[in-house]
Every structure is written in structure tokens, then in C-alpha cells.
Nucleic acid binder design. Sequence first.
RNA 1: GGUCCGUUAGCUCAGCUGGAUAGAGCGCCGCCCUCCGAAGGCGGAGGCCAGAGGUUCGAAUCCUCUACGGACCGCCA
Length: 576
Amino acid sequence: MKTLVLQGIDTLVADGTLPEGLETRAVSVEPPRDPAHGDMATNAAMVLAKPARKSPRDIAAALAEVLAKDPGIANADVAGPGFLNLRLDPSRWFSIIPAVIAAGTGFGRSEMGQGQRVNVEFVSANPTGPLHVGHTRGTVFGDTLSNLLAFAGYDVTREYYINDGGAQVDVLARSAYERYREANGLEPEIAEGLYPGDYLIPVGEALKEKYGDSLIDQPEDKWLAELREFATEMMMDLIRSDLALLGVKMDSFFSEKSLYGSGRIEEAVESLESRGLIYNGVLEPPKGKKPEDWEPRPQTLFKSTEYGDDVDRPLKKSDGSWTYFAPDIAYHYDKIQRDFDMLIDVFGADHGGYVKRMKAAVAALSGDKSVSLDIKLVQLVKLFRGGEPFKMSKRAGNFVTLRDLLDQVGPDETRFVMLTRKNDAPLDFDFDKVTEKSKENPVYYVQYAHARACSILSRARDENMETSDEALAGADLSLLGRDAEMRLLRKISEWPRHVELAANHHEPHRISFYLYDLASEFHALQHQGKLEEEHRFVRPDAPDLTRARLALVRASMVVISTGLGILGVTPMEEMR
RNA sequence: GGUCCGUUAGCUCAGCUGGAUAGAGCGCCGCCCUCCGAAGGCGGAGGCCAGAGGUUCGAAUCCUCUACGGACCGCCA
């Protein structure tokens, strides 16, 4: 459609109506908000008016004349300050239905990504226990974004960064050791600061199986390293199975620990050093507050301010060991070297202060390749139960694991609801509302539309009508044309556009909102059949009309099911 | 002191890389089932898009400042 408009502009340039060399990038061709304005509208005349030194309405009129000659365009009207409203020939609209049916769940797939390699890092929870609700949103977001990008033609790798290098893994090992003692009939001493969770009991038992009682009363240095590894392995198995419950499968797990002692961190830091971005210095104390124990200490610093950060960031602690930032730099350096074109990190909003420095590091390390890094911050989920805030605390032991959540809510509802907000807006998650089966609950609303469509097709089969895709694709669609039908058709045709917008912005929630709108048009159309019998989809007395309507139903169903597929939600065929 | 995010209907939120009269759900007021699934549909009331400047033919959208809310700001990951 846009190319048609651009061609029209070229024609006008050729015949001298418009000067040459105009910038047409700002020209947009979009469906107008108000359908009364036509099927498509372009701002071309207004954008071009100034450089062409002509009045927008004159340009629009000339363009209208050219475009009206195209057989696909029924008419072109100039409106308002210079909008050009185009009404398409109905046949052009109808042609989308057989296209959808033929493409099936491939409809809307885009080549936008051109096979570019994208690494999406998400979850990356510490390997010290099961996933809890706090991890859910980022997990769903990352996985859905990955689905979306794959659908838009990117080559996607889902990656989990295992934080198995830090002090929290020592804590894990010590906690596991107590459970190991417990398995050997001793009283565990879960000291303050250790992980008290029951999920470590099986780890203790597995340790007994492996080591018997040989580690009892041994000093820590005899077992710490081994238990770190052992317990981390078991925790990652646990996490993998938690992810599977949500339908998430990572392509790759990257161990932080593997960076230590391999020279990889040093290599990354040297790369920065060779660009003159490393120095030894003393940071200013943070302003506005007065830390009591502040004293200036020299540290190894990364000049992230050269890339837009506010202050330079330390790579080494004052005792000479690495800060957490150093291995993270090495990790991203590794991703760059693995030849990704685009990196996406999904973090919790509390990591906001981390964004600039990481972008600075990636910008510095990627050099000429200029690998892009997008960091998506996912805001908190506030839990509610029956409208009341639901507080949880690790201390009281009442924090909700992902597994607990899925016992009560189910993966489909969880995934959909987690995507009903922009990632950077907080989300209210009410245990009771998400399982409610009503219009208030978008999951059911969309599912219901799909189930209804299934039901209509099966109803048609009861009337001995053919509902195969082949039969429907051959329907005489010119029998359609009612307002509600055209609205639904228009919505269906918007699907590929929404896919590209969502993929471009890295905003999977747009898919949920689109599906809600689509379902809404479908319900509205369906309802007309309730009011007037002649508007029913299935009309045994009018087989050709029925076939055309069923084709529309089928196309709606295909798009809903495709969209739900991207969200990782199973479309339901019935909802009893 | 600084950074990031947010501020749109009574409430919870969408709003397309600037477009025409700013949308949806809930709540409120009405209406619609002798069933193609009411788990639904239709209508009504309800807006200074936080405020002030700026850019533009045109701003909820872009820029600057201000106010308010949240997150973060050296050795914890």
C-alpha cells in the first residue's frame, strides 16, 4: 500500500508537479483511527508541502488523481488539512482471507529480522533455590519476546546466566551441608544467613547417597568446593523443571564460574585497557547522603563516563578481587565474540542503575561491530488475593514459589496476565481475578473467542457443511460486506503490522492487547447472529453465504491461535 | 546531589518510531438470551492527557524546566 503511494509521488515528480529529491521517509500510510475516513490514510501531502513549496491540499488532490487510476483503489479523497483518504476496492480486503487460511499459523510471519542473531538473556536467577513469583514476569517476558522475535525473522538464542561464582553459592553449600548432616541423623544447625528452605533436604539426602558419612565433622575446606558444585547442579535441575512448567526452554546456560581462572575476565578487561578505558582512581562519595564508614580507596575503574554513564565504575574491590561487574563485562564480551548482532537483557527494575554501565561496556567492547544492547527492565508484580495485597517474606517462610503459583493458576493464565502490562509498568496480579472466567479476565475473553469459533465450525459440520480449509478458501467472499464483518476483517489484516511493531519495540504486551481487540470484534459479530437469525454464521438455507462467513471465522481463529502461540498460551477448543 | 522509570476517565491501564472528534476494562445508569456458547453483546454518563514553555502545518506522543510517585546511586549479587 505504501509503495503504491510512493509510486504515485514518483509519478508526480516525473510530470513536474513535484520537485525532485524529496525526502519521503516521513510519509506514512496507516489505517485511520476513524474507519469513516476510509481504509487507509496518508499524510504525504502535508509532509511534502513545505519542501515542495505547494499547498498540501493541492498536492493531495494531484496525488488522489494519480492513485484513483489504480484498480485496487476504489476512491481517494482529500480531507482536513491535507490527508488523503483511500478506500480500497473490497476485493482487496477479501483477498486476505484465503491468504490467512493458506498460511495458517504462518500468517503474519515477518522477514524483518533478516536472520540476524539475537541473544535474549533472561531469568538468570541465582542457583540457590527454586524460582519464585518474583522471577515469573521476567521469565514470561523474555520467553515471549524470544518467540516474537523468532516469528519476526530473527535467529534467537534464549540464554540463562548462572550466577554461580559469588558468595551466595558458599551460603548454598553450607546450607546443603547442614541438610547433609540431617540426612545422617544429626540435628541441622541452620544458622542465621543460611537458606532454610525445605528444597535443600533432597540435596542433603543425595549427598548422603554419594558420600555416606565421610564428610561429617570434616572442616569446611574439605568439602566446600565440591558441595558448591553439587548443590548448584541440583538447583539448576530444579530451576529447569520450574521453567518447563511455564513452558520455557532455554537454548543455552552460561556459567559465571566458568569465567574465573580461564583468563576470560582478564581478557575482557585488557580489551578495555587497550582502548584506554581503565585506570586506577578514587571515587567520590555519593552525594546527598553521608555514609558513615566512607573512606576514599583506590580501585581499578572503568571509564564508563566516556559512554554516557554518570560515574566511572569499579572493576576491582579495594582488596584486589573482582567486583560482580567484571565477570558481567566478560560475559557480555563473550556474547559479542559469539557473533550476535543484537543483545537483549531482561532484568528486574531494581537493576536499573546497572543499565548505563552495561551499555557503556558493550559499546566499548563491540568496537566497530557496534553490537546493540537493549536492556528491558521488568517492574514488580504486586500480588493480591481477593483484592487484598498479599505480603510475602522469605523470613516468615511464606514466599510463593513459581510452582505454588502454577498449582493455583495454571501456566496459560499466568503467562497471559503477565503480558497485560508494559514491562516497565508495575503489574497487579490477583490470584482470584486471574482464574475468574469472565470478560474482566482477558485470558478467558480471548480463549472464549477461539472456542466459539471452533464451536461454530463444528456446528456447521453438524449441518453437513464442508469446513475444510480447501473448501473455505474457495468461498465467494464478495457475499460478505456488513459493517461488523468488515471491522473484523480489518482487524485481522492488521495482524502483520502489530507483529512488526511489537518486535521492533521489544514489547510483547502489544500482542496481548491486539488479541483482546480482535476477540472483541469477533464477539460483536457473533452476537449479531443472536439478535437476527439472518446474521448467523451458519445458514443451512444459504450455503454460499455460510461458506464465506465460515472462511472469516476460520481466519479469525487462525490469527488468534497464532497470537496465543507467540504468548505461549494454548488455544482452547472448548471451555467447559 | 545525581540517574532511570512513571503521571491519560472515580479505579486499573492501552495509545502505532508526531495526525483528524484521546480508547478499553472495572465501577455507575439503562437495555439484550424459546440457546450458531450471556465465560457474551449494545447504549449512556464520566478527560485541562500532572503543570509551564518550546519545536511543527499538527503534540498525550519529540525537547527543556517544574511538581508529585517509585526504583537505584563505592567493596551485596
